[in-house]
Simulated scan of single mutants.
Amino acid sequence: MNKNQAFPWDHPRFRSWIGVARACQLMQQAVTRAIADLGIKPPHLDILVNLYRFQGISQQELARKLLVGRSNMSMLLPQLEKRGLIERNPDAKDKRVLRLSLTAEGRALTEQAMTIQTGLIERIMSQTPEDRCLQVAEAMEDIIRILQTLETADDEEEG
């Protein structure tokens, strides 16, 4: 870094990015504490909520939605299956594909966890006016689109 160049933390966009990252980290910690009594952690909750929304999704599709590798899935899914919260069944057309679904117990636990998570989000976000919350959401959606475009461009360059 040369003497004329500003430090990253002096840049307003860097400050904004660090603020988002810290908020995510602190929220993750708050969610972890809030759902601890249910015997699940945020990665489990991510899986359960996605299965609640997309019943019958494949393991590969779920990993893609959660932006994680198959190795992460292969560690977490057996834990949920062993607890009787999810089922993995072969696809009717392609036996190599496993379809995931919630059991009745998994559905009930997911609903409890979503209620806790939603309550926590509401408690935190209600202290900020709705229009500012929407501005943050729009900014983050823009960033997601930009990052996805960059990822696609990088993939095309490599391929």
Rank of each mutant, 00 (worst) to 15 (best):
D142E: 13
D46M: 12
I40T: 04
Q135K: 08
K41Q: 15
Q60C: 02
D91I: 05
Q55N: 13
G69C: 02
E122W: 12
T118K: 13
L134P: 00
A36Q: 14
M125D: 07
G56Y: 10
L66I: 05
E81G: 04
N50V: 05
K82L: 09
P78E: 06
G56E: 09
E105C: 02
R33E: 15
I18D: 05
R88Y: 03
R53Y: 11
G56W: 09
R99K: 13
R123H: 12
V31G: 01
G106A: 09
P129F: 11
L26T: 11
E61D: 14
L62K: 01
L80K: 01
I86N: 01
E138N: 05
L98H: 11
Y52N: 11
I57N: 00
L100Q: 03
I143A: 15
A23L: 12
I40K: 01
A92V: 12
R99Q: 09
G19V: 05
L109M: 08
Q112I: 03
L77N: 00
E61M: 07
A137S: 10
M27Y: 14
V68H: 01
I116F: 03
H44A: 08
S58C: 02
Q28N: 15
C133Q: 15
P43L: 08
E81V: 00
L120A: 06
G119R: 03
R132C: 05
S74H: 12
G119M: 06
A21R: 11
R99P: 00
Q112Y: 04
A30V: 05
L120S: 07
I40P: 09
G39S: 05
E61F: 02
I18Q: 09
N50S: 13
A63T: 02
L147K: 11
A92N: 06
T149A: 14
D91C: 08
V97E: 07
L48K: 02
L26H: 13
L67Q: 12
L102Q: 03
M75T: 09
I144D: 11
C24D: 12
V31K: 04
R22P: 00
G69S: 05
K65Q: 10
D46I: 01
I144G: 00
S71Y: 06
Q29L: 14
C133R: 15
T103A: 02
I47K: 03
R132M: 14
R88C: 07
L45K: 03
Q28S: 14
H44D: 15
G39D: 07
E130N: 06
L98V: 04
L76P: 00
A34N: 04
K65D: 03
D46S: 14
Q112P: 01
T128Q: 10
Q148H: 11
S126T: 08
L100M: 03
A104R: 10
Q55W: 10
Q25V: 05
L134I: 13
T118R: 13
K41N: 09
V20P: 00
L48W: 08
E105Q: 14
S71T: 09
R53N: 10
R64T: 13
I86P: 08
Q29R: 15
L98C: 02
R33F: 11
L67V: 11
L147E: 14
I57A: 06
V49A: 12
L134D: 09
M114R: 13
T32W: 09
